[in-house]
Amino acid sequence: MSRAAASPPLVPPAKQEHDATLFGMGIFLASEFLLFGGLFTILVFYRIVHGHEVVEASKELHLWIGALNTVVLLTSSLAAALAAKSAKDGDQRLTQRLLLAAAALGAVFLVIKAGEYSLEYGDGMLPVPGGGGQLVEPLSRLFMNIYLVATGLHAVHLTIGIGLFVFTAFRIWHRSIRLPQDQLSIVVPTLYWHLVDIVWIFLYPALYLQR
């Protein structure tokens, strides 16, 4: 069935490692996306069963704050994509700066999000202790619960992404990543970042634009 081939080195060749890492990341991202898939299913289900109530509840959300946040996140994604490109070109400084810019934009997103939460809290629309005064109807409370879980889970992912970017930028500064040979160390976190962006792109209409 087999015979010994010319002996390759014990360490797998770089190309193989590159492919394996990217492919593994792709599968991981698919898996992460399905994590949110469960939440999308819940939203679609209630949209079908209680369409009217869901639309009414959705209208209470701050549509334009969400839009602003989408812009922020898209911009950060652009920065992340540029970081990956400049990493391939071997520009350590630029990569580092772009990563930090993307992370900063992510932080801006979180700040805006927090502001939005506090607005909703003030309106009595947030189903947390002391904050849900206006949520008389069970279904609007339910919708806001789903909103809170979905955006909260997204915010957790974004925080992880910010952490990854800051850490990666630190490693560039620390010279433990050298470009362009270690470009995968940049590409992998940016892929994760784009996924978090894509999740938001679906969450935004699913939560804010139910009309």
């Binding site: 898996s31 994590l35 469960g38 819940i42 069970p138 409370r141 339910l142 619960n145």
Partner: peptide, 24 residues
């Protein structure tokens, strides 16, 4: 890879449901 995350989020919701009364 493709089915487990759905269980993961569902079980997280069960726990949240029990702890905070989400009601989903």
């Amino acid at each position: 890879v493709l089915a487990t995350p759905v269980l993961t989020v569902t079980l997280a919701l069960i726990a949240a449901e029990r702890l905070f009364g989400l009601g989903i």
